[in-house]
Simulated scan of single mutants.
Amino acid sequence: MTMKTHERAANLALAGLSLAPLVVKVNPNVNVILTACLAVYVGCYRSVKPTPPSETMSKEHAMRFPLVGSAMLLSLFLLFKFLSKDLVNAVLTAYFFILGIAALCATLLPSVKRFLPKEWNDNAIVWHAPFFHSLSVEFTKSQVVASIPGFFFCIWYAAKKHWLANNVLGISFCIQGIEMLSLGSFKTGAILLVWVVCTELKLFLSEILLLFFHHSSIKIIT
């Protein structure tokens, strides 16, 4: 089997794992592990380009990553703390609606391009914003076609918030994040990996502490 065949098999397996809980009972832990592994595989495969990327993530960027991530989490916590929950949810829904269309479009694009005329893939269209001519967006007709199913899917996500929609968007974000990530060295990758492990450990310990203090407060009250 060629690498391209492996990727297609992984894509089919991802689709099957996403849809399987709709018809059969699937162990959630097994589903999560397999889905994560397949998403990483597909993202890594797609990140390999014919020509090396012009920009790569440096060690400094990787070391700055935890600070940016922590700031984002803190900002989200403060938003929920001081603003209306409905307002924050509406803003996040709109945010994921727009990002979801872009992520699904980019994820579906390689499959869609094969069935479209070559000029639709190569000839870029540049759209300039009215009154702000410095702001422009470049896209192809293939990207427009690929964004159509993503648009309707995200409408369903915003309207229903179905778990399947959440899972599909999460997989798309994961694949696109890995595909766009270009590490300059092994050391940079190791820094990111350590940060991810430490973050997971921190979240795990936080959950334990919250449960401990929660049960302790209940005992004191009773």
Rank of each mutant, 00 (worst) to 15 (best):
T2N: 14
R8S: 03
A9D: 01
A9P: 03
N11P: 03
G16R: 05
G16N: 08
L17I: 05
S18H: 00
V24A: 09
V26G: 03
N29C: 10
T35M: 15
T35N: 15
V40T: 15
V40Y: 15
C44Q: 15
P52S: 04
P52Y: 00
P53K: 08
E55N: 10
E55W: 00
S58N: 07
K59L: 05
M63T: 01
F65S: 01
P66S: 10
L67N: 00
V68K: 10
G69R: 03
A71N: 02
L74E: 01
L74D: 00
L78C: 08
T93D: 13
T93N: 13
I98F: 13
I101V: 14
I101R: 03
A102M: 03
C105W: 02
A106F: 04
V112F: 08
K118A: 13
E119H: 11
W127R: 09
F131D: 07
F132S: 13
S136G: 04
V137A: 14
F139G: 06
F139L: 11
Q143K: 12
V145C: 06
C154N: 11
A158E: 07
L164S: 11
S172N: 09
Q176W: 01
S182H: 14
S182I: 01
K187W: 00
L192E: 02
V194G: 03
V197A: 09
C198T: 07
T199L: 00
L201K: 04
K202S: 13
H214D: 12
